[in-house]
Simulated scan of single mutants.
Amino acid sequence: MMNSIKLKGALLSVILFLMMLAVWHLATAPKSGMNQPDRVSTTTASSGNSEYDLLMGKGSKDVAPAQKSGFPTLTQMGETFYKQLSDPFYDKGPNDKGIGIQLAYSLARVSLGFLLALVVALPVGFLIGMSPLLSAALNPFIQILKPISPLAWMPIALYTIKDSSISGVFVIFICSIWPMLINTAFGVASVRKELLNVAKTLEVNPIRKAFKVILPAAAPTILTGMRISMGIAWLVIVAAEMLVGGTGIGYFLWNEWNNLAISSVLFAIVVIGFVGMLLDMLFAKLQKMVTYAD
């Protein structure tokens, strides 16, 4: 039954995807009967046919609608995908690196910031979950710091650290720590009393109790926090790299926009979404592995 539903869902997804491609094609295809100019002149300032004007749809009246809109056709998108993916690891200087290298920089920053948050959030979350007194003492600080946008910390990070790449890692650390901390504390505090009473009866030492009793019981909730944190981290790193520049998928996207390469911008958006989906699937798989059915 479940396999049948999954198969039908996959088929429906393919149909919806094909429908979106059809709408895209119809929206960007030139209207029939219109004369296509051999080339568009963009050299005369008085004509207003600058590259930016063409992108914004303010070009010459002789230009076809698909060209005036600046939105790429499916053929142009296919060419962009082929160009970017055929050689993803080329390096031709600071502002010209392949999408593979840019993704590697972003994933490295996300991984480092995420791991640092994990090192802090798990033990502190355990302490908060096991101690009502500590929970009451730290809760006001958590509630004040949690709603602050991670990007609001970027000026402070740049001022104190004075390194854009490390500042990006710090921002990932800040945005990743709260979901993991809160979910860990909640999972530990929600462990069934029967399990704790059995451990107490057997006189299990605190460290063994934490790893053998509390951690397995709280693992699904902890993995949920980690999954949420990774999603937020991947979301934030794109915006952070747009601000600090240099390298990364966010910088690649912003640099392509500055070059008015809309097809490359859309390509970057698709890559960001695809990588984010893979990361979420990874944590969903881990979450399923530690979840036990009653």
Rank of each mutant, 00 (worst) to 15 (best):
L181C: 05
F170W: 11
K200I: 00
Y159N: 11
V169R: 09
I156W: 07
T184F: 07
G187R: 01
P147E: 13
C175D: 09
L202Q: 08
A218C: 08
L202T: 07
V198C: 04
V188G: 03
L223D: 07
M180H: 04
S165A: 08
I214S: 02
V213F: 11
W178A: 08
N197F: 05
I214N: 02
M180V: 03
K200N: 14
I148R: 05
E194R: 06
T184L: 07
T221R: 10
K212Q: 15
P206D: 01
I182F: 00
L215A: 13
K209N: 13
N197V: 05
L181D: 08
D163F: 01
L215E: 08
A152M: 11
T221M: 13
R192G: 11
P150F: 03
V198T: 11
I161P: 01
V188A: 03
F173I: 05
K200D: 15
N183S: 14
V191S: 01
E194Y: 00
L223N: 05
I207E: 00
A185S: 15
R192N: 15
S149H: 06
P216V: 04
A219R: 07
E203M: 03
V198S: 05
V188I: 07
K146A: 03
P150T: 12
T224Y: 13
S190P: 10
S149E: 09
L181G: 03
I172G: 04
F186P: 00
A217M: 06
A152V: 12
V198M: 12
N183E: 10
I166M: 12
V213K: 08
V198Q: 07
T224H: 08
I177A: 10
S164L: 10
I174D: 02
E194K: 06
